[in-house]
């Protein structure tokens, strides 16, 4: 939305998973403690995001987007190597929280409770975020900053601090994504680049900079992939990228995005 392109978002996702693993190691896996670890992991990533914005990213505003891209790519390389030094190359694993380790049956299909929580959390976070943007004072500032940074500053808003907070919030969400996925997968080096490719497809389908576009892009991506696997198991990936290509041809700015002026 702020026309800030952050390639390192996948890395924040990976770090969220690693920091959650680390917190679980410290506090143990007892009831309720997973959530504490996940929150701690996401907060640690948010703090890192704040540092990165304050010390480094700040100098790139107003410059060409190519610089941002290169900078965040460098960040991807540095942070993933740092993660490897801290946690090694061996895969790590976090257990599902004991209170949600069960499953229930719906129309003959088994759904693990934890997956249901994730399914519900996604739209809840999206809705909460949207309401914040639309209905609160901070949300108005953010939207104003996206439209015209200078004027907002001239009106007496501390734009610098605002950008730091936004960047921290984005890092927090990235870290939270990694924290919440950790009980469902292995935590390995390389999970950062895996997710960023998928996220990129989602954003392109939905429309760069469009809030609900990204949300629906993700839903469409998941559905096309799942039904692709069901009907044409060997072409499921092809279906997703074909969809992306089709969207790019018909609406290069994405389904819900707006064309650049």
């Amino acid at each position: 939305m702020l026309r800030v392109l952050n390639f390192a978002h996948g890395t924040f996702y990976m770090l969220g998973a690693y920091t959650t693993y680390q917190f679980v190691q410290w506090v143990g896996g007892g009831p309720g403690l997973f959530w504490l670890a996940a929150l701690g992991g996401a907060l640690a990533v948010a703090a890192l995001g704040g540092l990165v914005e304050r010390l480094l990213f700040r100098h790139l505003y107003g410059k060409e987007e190519l610089y941002q891209l290169l900078f965040t790519y460098a960040l991807v390389l540095i942070l993933s190597d740092a993660a490897k030094m801290l946690w090694g190359t061996q895969q790590k694993s976090v257990s599902r929280p004991p209170e949600l380790s069960g499953a229930f049956t719906l129309f003959g299909a088994t759904i693990p409770s934890y997956n249901l929580l994730i399914i519900l959390l996604g739209p809840a976070i999206a809705l909460g975020f949207w309401l914040t943007l639309q209905r609160t004072r901070v949300g108005r500032f953010i939207r104003a900053a996206a439209l015209d940074r200078e004027t907002l500053g001239a009106l007496g808003v501390d734009v610098d601090a605002l950008y730091t907070w936004i960047f921290m919030l984005a890092s927090f969400l990235g870290g939270l994504g990694g924290a919440l996925i950790s009980p469902m997968r292995a935590i390995t080096p390389g999970m950062d680049t895996e997710i960023i490719v998928e996220a990129f497809v989602v954003v392109v389908i939905g429309g760069l900079g469009s809030f609900w576009g990204t949300f629906f892009g993700a839903l469409i991506y998941g559905q096309v992939l799942s039904f692709g696997i069901l009907f044409f198991p060997r072409f499921s990936i092809f279906a997703v990228f074909a969809l992306m290509a089709a969207v790019l041809m018909v609406r290069p700015w994405g389904l819900l995005g707006r064309p650049l002026q």
């Binding site: 895969q91 599902r96 499953a103 088994t110 009980p183 997968r185 292995a186 390995t188």
Partner: peptide, 16 residues
């Protein structure tokens, strides 16, 4: 193989 098996079996186990 490898770390992918960790991901696979965690998800498979949850589905029974």
């Amino acid at each position: 193989w490898g770390g992918f098996f960790v991901t696979f079996s965690k998800q498979a186990r949850a589905l029974g």
